[in-house]
């Protein structure tokens, strides 16, 4: 029996799992490092050794998956840069609220604190919109790569 562990990014689970299933592997477990981790550690097994040519086909599929992962990594960087800015803006608002409190501007203090907390809280929900923006800005074509993957899987050995 052979075992393989793959770190799968959020949103790519079905593509990756379908790819390995088509190559004769079965999923036995999935786990995440944390609730908000973008990666799931998926463990695959196969009962019999890979037939001739299957290893080469798997390598080609993994190359396409690696290209998709590279795109995802760039989009993730885009998201992180922007979400850090939003979080910092929230921290600045909270910091400014101390100044407004010192000046006795209680209503402005309240609004500044509320805005700061809102900006800090919203960082939890910004992954989907920033990911979409990142994909648009980078102008990448993930569906084309997924089609390429499907084509490799459909080839006869």
């Amino acid at each position: 029996m052979e075992e393989l562990t793959v770190s799968v990014r959020q949103g790519r689970e079905s593509v990756t799992e379908n790819c390995y299933k088509a190559l004769g592997w079965q999923v036995i477990s999935r786990s995440k490092e944390s609730d908000t981790s973008p990666f799931t550690r998926t463990v695959f097994i196969r009962e019999e050794p890979e037939p001739d040519g299957a290893a080469e086909k798997r390598a080609r599929c993994e190359a396409v998956l690696a290209e998709i992962e590279e795109i995802d990594r760039r989009v993730e960087r885009y998201y992180l840069e922007r979400v850090v800015l939003v979080g910092l803006a929230g921290a600045v608002c909270i910091g400014l609220s101390f100044l407004f409190l010192h000046l006795g501007w209680h209503v402005v203090f309240t609004l500044s604190l509320l805005l700061g907390l809102f900006l800090c809280s919203i960082t939890l929900a910004l992954r989907p919109p920033f990911t979409r923006m990142g994909l648009r800005k980078l102008g990448v074509d993930v569906p084309a790569l997924e089609s390429k993957l499907t084509a490799i899987l459909e080839e006869e050995n």
Partner: peptide
């Protein structure tokens, strides 16, 4: 008490 809990999400993973 709350703000670091939220932006600290980035540290968690």
């Amino acid at each position: 008490g709350q703000a670091p809990l939220e932006i600290g999400l980035l540290l968690c993973n």
